[in-house]
């Protein structure tokens, strides 16, 4: 499999086999990601990290991934310090950045921005989130986490909980899980349900989908993927409080769950998971965050052609 020069814009650009291959490479990166083994695999390469929107985990883990492999990083975390402030187009910024680096990682508030950047750049573009669009590296690290925690992706019953209408990570994740024909339960308030197109697409791909509005039935779940319900989706703050409260995960909601059920969350969380849950064996979200490093190391090494 040759990934050299490839853009990483959407999880849909990758086949099931390619996804598994990326996860295999990420697995091999684990000792380097943990700092137990040193590597100079990407020595001499430069990654431009262009973050037009705030990010903690995506930006830091990409930079850590590049540096763990001996590569260098240039870039910005605030567009306020760049010529964009003077009215420069994204196209021009990309054409400038590509002349200084070997790979570009970007996050931008507009949907389709990474797809457009890929048109203008001759170096690979890795999408670190484009508005409400795609976030393929999050999706890959989610799959990596499920496989690492549960042994395999197939055969699990995965519940996606929270804002399923607007949450960009859950749409990509649902698609990717459908590629593995995973049984899924979509749990959300009625006004934040998974879009019909996503449900239909997953069903057409052979996934078994159940739609629910409450937390009942968590005892059948192997992986509970929690997302944030955003306040701004509700015109009435009281309504938000009521809805958010009824989907909150705490020790009581976990009373009857399977022993080995894991809870994932793309983070940042607000109060959808009570901090007391962090101490339970179910909490996998901080391990999930760490997994961003080996997965992003794998992608960088693959698109730069140092691993084939």
């Amino acid at each position: 499999m040759n990934f050299k020069g490839r853009d990483v814009i959407s999880i849909k650009d990758f086949s099931r086999e390619e996804i598994l291959y990326i996860l295999d490479v990420a697995e091999k990166m684990l000792p380097i990601a943990e700092g137990k083994k040193k590597s100079n695999l990407l020595n001499g390469y430069i990654m431009a990290s262009l973050f037009f929107e705030p990010s903690t985990r995506t930006r830091l883990s990409f930079e850590a991934a590049m540096k763990r492999l001996g590569g260098n990083v240039i870039g910005f975390a605030q567009p306020g310090t760049t010529s964009l402030q003077k009215g420069e187009t994204l196209a021009d910024t990309i054409k400038t950045a590509e002349s200084y680096c070997d790979v570009i990682v970007m996050r931008h508030p507009k949907e389709g921005s990474a797809r457009m950047a890929a048109k203008f750049a001759s170096v690979p573009i890795i999408n670190g989130g484009d508005g409400a669009g795609h976030h393929p590296t999050q999706c890959l690290l989610d799959l990596f986490t499920i496989r690492k925690e549960k042994g395999q992706i197939e055969g699990n019953r995965v519940a996606l909980l929270g804002d399923l209408k607007y949450g960009r990570t859950v749409h990509s994740l649902a698609y990717a899980l459908a590629l593995f024909k995973v049984d899924m339960v979509f749990i959300s308030p009625p006004e934040l349900q998974m879009p019909k197109e996503v449900i239909e697409e997953c069903r057409e791909m052979g996934a078994n989908i159940t739609i629910k509005n409450s937390l009942e039935g968590l005892d059948e779940i192997d992986v509970l993927y929690v997302t944030r319900i955003q306040k701004e989706r509700f015109p009435d703050p009281e309504e938000y409080k009521k809805v958010a409260g009824s989907y909150r995960i705490d020790l009581k909601t976990l009373e009857n769950v399977k022993e080995d059920m894991i809870i994932m969350h793309p983070l940042p969380r607000v109060d959808e998971i009570s901090p007391e849950v962090d101490e339970t064996k179910h909490a996998a979200y901080f391990r999930q965050t760490f997994n961003g490093v080996p997965v992003r190391m794998a992608l960088l090494a693959l698109v730069l052609g140092e691993i084939k």
């Binding site: 994204l90 508030p109 507009k110 949907e111 389709g112």
Partner: peptide, 12 residues
């Protein structure tokens, strides 16, 4: 989609 990159001043 008002938030689509094609609805900005980009040269596309």
């Amino acid at each position: 989609n008002p938030n689509c990159i094609s609805n900005t001043k980009e040269p596309i």
